[in-house]
Design a protein around this nucleic acid. Structure first.
Length: 488
RNA sequence: GGGCCUGUAGCUCAGCGGUAGAGCAGUGGACUUUUAAUCCAUUGGUCGUGGGUUCGAAUCCCACCGGGCUCACCA
């Protein structure tokens, strides 16, 4: 490892500190009050002696005094260092050996400066940890997008918004758990390493267990395991976990992402819509403090209930194509192309409908909306609508153009499930690598009887994107997937 | 994978065929109430990498390594 001039300078200071008997990395620290508390409670704490800590963010020397802005996890406070109080030696240390980025601790009297800034009138100041690399620019922060993702700690140090998003994400997860627990759901854990993957249309990551000498898949969903628990009589279960999908990376997709899946026995997809509405409203009120949320150019009202629009009607309204009335696939393809959609000649009927959804319906789904009742072909785990074997009871919630999740009335007919798996296998044989493999073990579970069940998956990252008004999933995942660079 | 954009000092950015620049940070100095402190002086670069065009390339061209947007793919 090589050190540049700025680092060499700091390493020299480090040596000076050691040579003069000062440990640049002492094992112990003290804190009697957080910075935020000191500022918030100043009126009744003025004059008290306190010890505060944090990272040195700004340094304003002025002869025999110095003002240091120090930031801990709660906020900023100012150190007011006067040579008369700390002595000439300590003053020299502050001026010559402390650098921006260092972690420091100071003891002194809580006071306000002439200009009203809450400060510690320092009597003792010490270094807790010497930073050997300089922090990002103090005013512009860290702008380089790549560096923000690769070295997130710098982003968190320099950019307030990055910190806010990280905190909000945690609060959203907390609110989600509280909401689900409050509805009687049991939080469970199912395997990340699965001998057979399933529950979504996606390509998996493959790994290998040495002792078993067996390939395993990182889960693309936990659906099939959670439904086994429903079979087992756990009537309301949910899991919040990472799923892994070996696919493209873009503003709304990361190869590992966080999903909340829940299943409720003796319920259907309407109950799942109630949960989505309730969950979003709960998160909005507890985390945002309002049912009105702004995302990008849009401001949406999350107040339930949300419109529940059959996909057929939504597509018909958006582009005038009634795909139910057009039974001939070639006719449907022709009409879709006329409307302006790009439809490859080998695209199957269900994908054409999906394309119509993406091209014409989705862009207009700004207000919270449920699209319901999807073609059966794309939903091998969902129950068909009574009286219509071509449509399943499935819905997707959309807010501000974001697709937040997926849900259905779960298929609990074991023989129908087996037939759907076999149809998937046929599509797989025809080259659709995202079609699901046959999971006979899951069918075996269904053969023991699964109650009528509603199931739901919510993309937590997208929910966080929405509630924190972030345009990219990389902004809500602390360490997003990036190509590794040479020499790292 | 395609198209468009992008990579210059530790950080934020200018320069876009003719001597490599600014602000912040750093270094030296002045300063006992600053708020991105101020003032004086000053160090710092294989202009992502490698080729090419040219009398001359940070600048134009090609390839490669990263990144962003977008389309495709994908919940």
């Amino acid at each position: 490892m090589e050190f540049d001039d700025l680092q060499q300078t700091r390493i020299a200071k480090l040596q000076t500190l050691r040579d003069t008997g000062r440990d640049p990395y002492p094992p112990r620290s003290e804190r009697t009050i957080t910075n935020a508390e000191a500022v918030a409670e100043f009126d009744r704490r003025e004059g008290e002696t306190h010890t505060v800590v944090g990272r040195l963010m700004l340094k304003r020397g002025q002869g025999k005094i110095a003002f240091l802005t120090v930031r801990d996890g709660t906020g900023d406070i100012q150190f007011f260092v006067q040579q008369n109080n700390v002595g000439e030696v300590a003053m020299q240390v502050v001026k010559a050996l402390l650098d921006l980025g260092d972690i420091v601790q100071a003891t002194g009297t809580l006071m306000k400066t002439r200009n009203g800034e809450v400060s510690i009138d320092v009597t003792d100041i010490r270094l807790l940890s010497k930073a050997l690399s300089p922090p990002p620019e103090k005013w512009h922060g860290l702008q380089d997008i790549e560096k923000r993702y690769r070295q997130r700690y710098l982003d968190l140090i320099a950019n307030d918004e990055a910190r806010q998003v990280a905190v909000q994400r945690s609060r959203i997860l907390e609110a989600t758990r509280a909401f689900m627990n409050g509805r009687g759901f049991l939080e469970v854990e199912t395997p990340t390493l699965q001998p057979l993957y399933g529950g979504a249309a996606a390509r998996p990551f493959v790994t290998h267990h040495n002792t078993l000498d067996q390939d395993l898949y990182l889960r693309i969903a936990d659906e099939l395991y959670l439904k086994r628990l429903i079979v087992g009589g756990l009537e309301r279960v949910y899991e919040i976990c990472k799923d892994f999908r070996n696919e493209g990376i873009d503003r709304q997709h990361n190869p590992e992402f966080t999903m909340m899946e829940c299943y409720q026995a003796y319920a259907d997809y309407h109950a799942m819509m109630d949960i989505v509405e309730g969950l979003c409203a709960h998160v909005a009120t507890t985390v945002i403090g309002s049912l009105t949320v702004t995302y990008g150019d849009h401001t949406v009202d999350l107040r339930p209930p949300w419109p529940r629009i059959p996909l057929r009607d939504a597509v018909k309204d958006a582009c005038g194509i009634d795909y139910v009335a057009i039974t001939d696939t070639e006719e449907l393809r022709r009409r879709a192309r006329e409307a302006g959609a790009e439809i490859p000649s080998d695209m199957v009927r269900a994908r054409i409908i999906d394309e119509l959804l993406k091209a014409f319906v989705r862009p207009s789904l700004i207000a919270p909306t449920f699209l319901i009742d999807y073609p059966v072909e794309l939903s091998p785990l969902a129950k068909t609508k009574p009286g219509d074997p071509t449509v399943v009871e499935r819905f997707q919630p959309f807010i501000a153009g974001l697709e937040l999740g997926n849900a259905y009335t779960e298929l609990n007919d074991p023989l129908d499930q087996l037939a759907r798996f076999e149809e998937q296998a046929r599509q797989r044989a025809q080259g659709d690598m995202e079609a699901m493999p046959v999971d006979e073990d899951f069918v075996t579970a269904l053969m023991h009887g699964m109650p009528p069940t509603g199931g739901l998956g919510v993309g937590i990252d997208r929910m966080v994107m929405f509630f924190t008004n972030q345009p990219s999933i990389r902004d809500v995942i602390l360490f997003p997937a990036l190509r590794s660079t040479e020499g790292r």
